[in-house]
């Protein structure tokens, strides 16, 4: 199998998608991977308007996602590396080593799967498919449940991988309607992702999905505070207790303090 420039771009995009936690770099990885994909699709889409459609789709999706992330970052509170659990140097090195090791294993696995299980089509197309699909799946598994940008990029990348395999295995060149529908679907997907990021940002002041799932699971409840009151006023004689401040009507004789 020849290692061509499109395959290198797809591999580079896949590596960045797995290893990078910066949202802007994740989107850059998606764009790099998509350029490689369009290049790889060129012979398969010969004689159809497929290549310009693919390029326009890539640019439109990247623009939608990029502008959304740029606006969210510009708004402030949320940092691009908000999901990094710790800023300690040791943890960052171990984290990066772990991610790069996974990327290496994924690369070897993709190459091996393409050689061992030929589904049809050229081996290069199959390697390209696995090098798009596996990093996308890992992006979803490793961080997709916490980081919506990786979730969106991973889903788009998965859609790209499926379409590459469809184009590679199909007996005939894709028709105009198929090209148009696949492009519209991915642009709609990018728009839905961007809308959801803005929705999360405006509702929860953060892009971290942990807040969302904590809310869903009821882990964030009403404000609970420690209140120090006279025992007799609430009918406790032998012990103090932690109670909801909104259950107490403070009077002049009670000194209540509360802290979050």
């Amino acid at each position: 199998m020849q290692i061509t420039l499109p395959i290198i771009l797809i591999a580079l995009g896949g590596i960045l998608l797995i290893t990078q936690r910066d949202r802007r770099l994740v989107l850059l990885a998606l764009l790099v991977q998509w350029v490689g994909l369009a290049w790889q699709l060129q012979p398969l889409l010969a004689g159809t308007p497929g290549l310009p459609v693919e390029i326009v789709t890539a640019l439109a999706c990247s623009a939608i996602l990029g502008i959304t992330v740029w606006n969210i970052n510009r708004a402030g509170t949320s940092t691009p590396t908000a999901t990094q659990p710790s800023n300690t140097r040791q943890f960052a090195i171990a984290d990066q080593l772990w991610l790069w090791a996974i990327a290496l294993v994924v690369g070897v696995a993709g190459y091996g799967l393409a050689r061992i299980y030929p589904l049809g089509g050229s081996e290069q197309d199959l390697v390209a498919f696995y090098w798009i699909a596996l990093p996308a799946l890992l992006a979803l598994v490793i961080d997709g449940s916490r980081e919506p940008v990786r979730l969106g990029a991973g889903i788009l990348s998965l859609a790209n991988a499926a379409l590459l395999l469809v184009y590679a295995l199909a007996a005939t060149s894709p028709g105009t309607l198929l090209l148009a529908l696949s492009a519209l679907l991915r642009i709609a997907l990018a728009a839905a992702s961007g809308y959801t990021w803005l929705f999360l940002r405006t509702t929860y002041h953060d892009l971290n999905l942990n807040t969302l799932f904590d809310m869903r699971d009821g882990k964030i409840a009403g404000e609970t505070a420690l209140a120090l009151v006279e025992m007799q006023s609430i009918g406790i004689t032998e012990s103090t207790d932690i109670i909801e401040t909104d259950q107490i009507e403070p009077t002049e004789t009670e000194e209540a303090t509360s802290d979050e």
């Binding site: 979803l140 979730l151 998965l158 859609a159 499926a162 395999l165 929705f199 509702t203 969302l212 869903r216």
Partner: peptide, 28 residues
């Protein structure tokens, strides 16, 4: 609201996964 957003996100993810499987299966 959080449940709603979580449900919507999961629905998108599963739909795209199902679509990919159906498309590749159809071609094969």
């Amino acid at each position: 609201l959080a449940r709603r957003v979580a449900g919507g996100l999961k629905h998108i993810g599963l739909s795209i996964l199902g679509t990919g499987l159906l498309a590749v299966g159809s071609v094969l």
